[in-house]
Nucleic acid binder design. Sequence first.
DNA 1: TTGTATGCGTTATCAC
DNA 2: GTGATAACGCATACAA
Lengths: 363, 363
Amino acid sequence: MAGGTTTIYDLARATGLSPSTVSRALRGIGDISPGTVARVRESAARLRYRPNVVARSLALRASDSFALMLPDIANPFFPALVKAVQLRARHHGKTVLLCNTEGVPAAEAEYLEMLASRQIQGVVVMGLAITADEIRRRVGSGMKIVALDRAAAGASAASVQADHRAGGWMATDHLLRLGHRAIAHISGPAQLSVTTERWEGYRDRMRQSRIDPGPPARGDFTESSGHQAAQELIHSGRHFTAIFCANDLMALGAISALRSAGLGVPAQISVLGFDDIELGRYAVPALTTIRQPLEDLARVAVDLLVGLLRGEEAPAPKRLAVELVVRESTAAPPRAVAGQAATLASSGIAPRGGEDVRSREDF
Amino acid sequence: MAGGTTTIYDLARATGLSPSTVSRALRGIGDISPGTVARVRESAARLRYRPNVVARSLALRASDSFALMLPDIANPFFPALVKAVQLRARHHGKTVLLCNTEGVPAAEAEYLEMLASRQIQGVVVMGLAITADEIRRRVGSGMKIVALDRAAAGASAASVQADHRAGGWMATDHLLRLGHRAIAHISGPAQLSVTTERWEGYRDRMRQSRIDPGPPARGDFTESSGHQAAQELIHSGRHFTAIFCANDLMALGAISALRSAGLGVPAQISVLGFDDIELGRYAVPALTTIRQPLEDLARVAVDLLVGLLRGEEAPAPKRLAVELVVRESTAAPPRAVAGQAATLASSGIAPRGGEDVRSREDF
DNA sequence: TTGTATGCGTTATCAC
DNA sequence: GTGATAACGCATACAA
């Protein structure tokens, strides 16, 4: 045990066996007698043997970890997902390397080089700027890719996504059923597929009720962008009694802006988010939202990746159902001033009426 | 270039040099002629050579990454810190492995084994259950440890912390200056040093004004625990006009509970947090809080660790200053009902008066 | 300034 | 069932 660390050579010496037998006994593969296995295990425990993962990776030309690339861990949706992914990864005996790209393509490319350097052959990507095909072009076809909550840009990648379009549809439907007609939408970054899909769901449901959806206000999924978008909406003079925000964080920002402008939520304006982050539950008012199945997404993504790593074929893209969670930020539109509830002029005390209305899914 | 990857042997063949010369040229160490360096670099670029970090780690018996262990990445304070740490790590050419312990000692131990297996010899720990000495006992003295925002439990570890005690003091001082006398405290997990220190700052400042601080309500730094603690405070019938919460997340939870109970913030009850998480800025009301110098903490911690890894001695524990950030969740206590503002009986409309008061630091 | 030989700890391919 | 032996790709002591 040179230098304090025990190796299989030490175990070989201790047991009177050969290194290769020790190696096999430790991993329980090949034909080894139960007795030897026991002996090896015993002295491994006694000598506090710890396998050297680095040496193993070198010999195997493969690592036991994979990467998780995401644009911004500061968005509360992602930490929860990271947790879920790590949990599932451990279930497979894998560790995950977190790569924060900040949405900048250069960082993405740099990370990919890094992964290749480390013999890492699998990556779960979320909201990336570059496509799976570009990834392959950069680091070779050995890299297994699973797109999480994002259209598989490039035919060959496996992917799981929540059904964002259905989510947009359900959100809008909920507001329409409450009686809203003037529903604004604050969307996310234009290039992201989730942005488009949530918007399409909204648009389709609006059109179904013969209402012109109008152009979305543009945000970037941060709280401050939601705040700002809502402010612009207010000052534009555009009429609306509800806002469907493309994620919870922007919804929180929007609520903040509305209240600062003297507009009650949900008394005057209803606000609906997307994701169902923990924070939304404790916000005041508690956020009505579309829940993404976080654990399921993580589980499916990791399992998919592990499958690819084992050499399995990429299955067809998977879609997971979302769910409407009705809380307190949505209510019926105000009765009296229902023509201009959202203009700055009407920022006094709201007429009661919306507060206690709770909606149910009943279709 | 066997199997698609280029090695230094390939470069040696391409340049007519030996592998060791190539190795040195690539790293720019030893005495090598400028000409050979250029030649090596050129063919490295042409053959798309990528150093195999795994092989290097094996040869060096050391990894180029370090670990960041923290209890719960779902707490918004941590993602921001993770970002800052990763940023600084890249500045040193290091990558960081994120270890989420969920506060369970078994997970901590398991992660430590994992680190040792990977030849990782440095770790930045936050809010861990086990001490630095226990870490050393487990994985040997080779592990370099930097405690971040936590007392260096065990003499030998380096550490950086914000000045939590001063923070507790400043928070309480701010409330006292606004005119509050009955100030409750919702604290964190008892075994954490930051919990104790923040509480001590609160206690000292209270005593300085000859007010009995009373026992703190106990939370665990989650929003829901803040919510619950505030509820219990309300139902206890105990009198208070302000709450100093040991972190922002609990403050947000407390505000939620207060409002649900019909208590206005800050009109009836002032609430003050700790950390200055992004969310607090956009909450309604915007959270008054004690700001921790996130980037500085991360920078100092990483630099400290890199120093230790280079064989430098652990310097004395470092303390970084915190800062009071006054926003909207604190105001003067209500005038009229100043005797029982916090009981459920008085949950009607609050007397005005607190709303527009803005405090300044003026000492 | 450059080359040779060896080791890092493991796995895999053979042979016994 | 078990044991030699040769990779894996890089770094380094030593020799030239």
